[in-house]
C-alpha cells in the first residue's frame, strides 16, 4: 500500500515539476531567470502578467481563442447529439460505413488539410474569422463527440424511448425533455473533449487566422525578438493558457475517467 502511494506520488511529482517550473518562472524577472537557477522567485513580480492584461494585442488572443473554442463546442454538440442518437438506436443504409468514414476524419493528420482549408475558407470569405477555425476543428471534434455520445446513449435502455412514445411524446419533446437530461454527464464530457481538442490545437488555428481571430498560441511566438526570448512573459502567457483547462476539468471531474474511455466502460 505504502509502495503504491509512493509510486503515485513520484509520478505526480514528475507531472507537476515542469508545470511548477513554468509557474515560478512567470513570477521572476528576466534578469533572475537568466542570471541564476532559483527554486523560488527572489523578487516576486507580477510585471509579466500586468503586461499581458494591459496590452490588447495580448489579451485579445485569449478572447479569440475562447470565442472559437466556444463556437466549436456549440456546433459540435448541436449536430453530434441527433447523429449519435441515430447511431445508437437505429440501423440504416450505410450506417457502419458512415461511422468508419467519420472516424477516419479523426485520423487525418491536420497537416494534410492545412492548405486546402486555407483555400476553401478564403474562397467562401471565412478566412481570419472565428467561425473558420471552429468549423475546421469540427472536422476533428465531431467524430470524437459522436463516438463518446453514442457510448453514453447506448447505456440508456431503449424501453425508455418506447414508453415515452406510447405516452404520446413527440420525438422532439422526448429528446429535449427526457433524453438529454438522462445523458447530461455524457454531454458534459463531450463538451469537455471538444473544448480540450480545440483549445490545445495550434497548427490549423494559426494557419486560418491572420489578425482578427489570431489565437493566443500564435501570439505567444511574439516573445521571440531580436534581443532574445522574453522568458518571463512567455511563461506568464503559458500559465494563463493552463487555467481555462483546469476550470473546465473541475466541472466534469467525476465523469472524466469514463469520458476518456469514450463512454464505453
Amino acid at each position: 500500500m505504502i509502495k503504491k502511494r509512493l509510486g503515485l506520488l513520484a509520478y505526480i511529482l514528475f507531472v507537476l515539476l515542469p508545470i511548477y517550473w513554468l509557474i515560478i518562472m512567470s513570477f521572476k524577472t528576466n534578469e533572475e531567470i537568466l542570471g541564476s537557477l532559483t527554486l523560488w522567485p527572489a523578487n516576486f513580480t507580477f510585471d509579466n502578467y500586468i503586461t499581458i492584461f494591459t496590452d490588447p494585442s495580448w489579451y485579445m488572443g485569449y478572447v479569440n481563442s475562447i470565442t472559437y473554442v466556444a463556437l466549436n463546442m456549440v456546433i459540435t454538440l448541436l449536430v453530434a447529439l441527433p447523429a449519435a442518437y441515430a447511431f445508437s438506436r437505429y440501423k440504416f443504409i450505410g450506417d457502419k460505413h458512415l461511422f468508419f468514414w467519420l472516424l477516419s476524419n479523426r485520423m487525418a493528420p491536420p497537416a494534410v488539410f492545412l492548405l486546402p482549408f486555407f483555400q476553401l475558407y478564403s474562397s467562401v470569405g471565412l478566412f481570419d474569422t472565428h467561425l473558420a477555425v471552429a468549423l475546421a476543428h469540427c472536422l476533428f471534434s465531431i467524430p470524437l463527440a459522436v463516438w463518446i455520445l453514442e457510448g453514453f446513449m447506448s447505456g440508456v435502455p431503449k424501453e425508455i424511448d418506447e414508453t415515452a412514445y406510447i405516452d404520446g411524446y413527440s420525438f422532439g419533446h422526448f429528446f429535449i425533455k427526457i433524453f438529454i437530461p438522462m445523458i447530461r454527464s455524457g454531454i458534459g464530457v463531450t463538451a469537455f473533449f471538444s473544448f480540450m481538442f480545440s483549445w490545445v490545437e495550434l497548427l490549423l488555428a494559426r494557419t486560418l487566422t491572420s489578425v482578427d481571430a489570431k489565437p493566443i498560441s500564435a501570439i505567444m511566438t511574439r516573445t521571440v525578438s531580436a534581443s532574445g526570448i522574453d522568458w518571463g512573459l512567455l511563461a506568464a502567457a503559458g500559465v494563463l493558457t493552463i487555467i481555462p483547462g483546469v476550470l473546465v476539468i473541475w466541472f466534469v471531474r467525476n465523469h472524466v475517467a469514463k469520458g476518456f474511455a469514450l463512454g464505453r466502460v
Partner: peptide
Amino acid sequence: ILLALPLLIPWNVVGTI
C-alpha cells in the same frame, strides 16, 4: 485532475514548458 493536467495544456505550451 492533477493527472489530466498535461492533457489540457495547449501543445505549443507543452513545447515551451
